[in-house]
């Protein structure tokens, strides 16, 4: 591996955003393929962080910050990547807090951690109307949707999204995960979700399982 690629990994792992952005640009300027920068540099760093998290060596603020740097480095390589027709795509996941609910903390944590296992995460935000989720599914064709709801009153929105997916003929194309404090496995089963997790580390494990089944 090139020294520059190594220093990109190192910069992401040590939350040195300035260096990470600079090195990403340098790698691109040096003519390296954008896929290699993305996979061997950026993604590899996040995967390493995920491994460290699993053995208790990395902490959540580091994971979230590194995921943020990853996003901004992606913005640098993306134009070059999009220009290539035969690009390899990683599994995509859409996450959102459902309509009526302003709680996005759990969803944000899950989003950051999903990136540490190599998923391409698209965060639609909080208080997201069902129609917007359906549009995003059509456009991005993700393998997975993660729906968060923290209130008993907004939980039914998770069910509404699943129904809307069925009506749009998209249900079989995508796995749906639900989560949030009042959400239980029983609820997930009742509304026909494919997966449920009570916390972020478990959500990542379930997400991987679902996307691999879908592969």
């Amino acid at each position: 591996m090139s020294d520059l690629l190594k220093s990109l990994q190192e910069a992401i792992l040590t939350i040195d955003e300035e260096t990470a952005l600079k090195v990403t640009q340098e790698l691109l300027d040096s003519g390296m393929e954008p896929e290699e920068i993305l996979e061997s540099g950026m993604t590899e760093a996040l995967l390493e962080l995920g491994r460290r998290w699993n053995c208790g060596e990395a902490f959540l603020p580091e994971v979230v910050a590194a995921a943020g740097i990853f996003e901004r480095c992606s913005a640098i390589v993306e134009p070059a990547l999009m220009a290539k027709a035969d690009r390899k795509v990683s599994d995509k996941a859409i996450i959102a807090t459902v309509k009526g609910d302003l709680h996005d903390l759990g969803k944000n944590i899950v989003g950051a951690m999903m990136k540490t296992v190599g998923l391409e995460v698209h965060d639609l935000g909080k208080n997201v109307p069902t129609e917007k989720i359906i549009e995003a599914v059509k456009e991005l064709q993700p393998k997975l949707i993660g729906l968060s709801a923290l209130l008993t009153t907004t939980m039914p929105e998770q069910e509404n999204v699943i129904k809307a997916l069925e009506e749009a003929g998209l249900r079989s194309a995508v796995k749906v995960m639900v989560g949030g404090a009042p959400v239980t496995q029983e609820w997930a089963d009742r509304i026909g979700a494919d997966g449920y997790a009570p916390n972020a580390p478990e959500a990542v494990r379930v997400a991987l399982e679902l996307t691999q089944v879908a592969a």
Binding site: G56, N199, A200
Partner: peptide, 8 residues
């Protein structure tokens, strides 16, 4: 505080 090892 959030437990930064478990995110709980």
């Amino acid at each position: 505080p959030l437990d930064m090892r478990t995110a709980l």
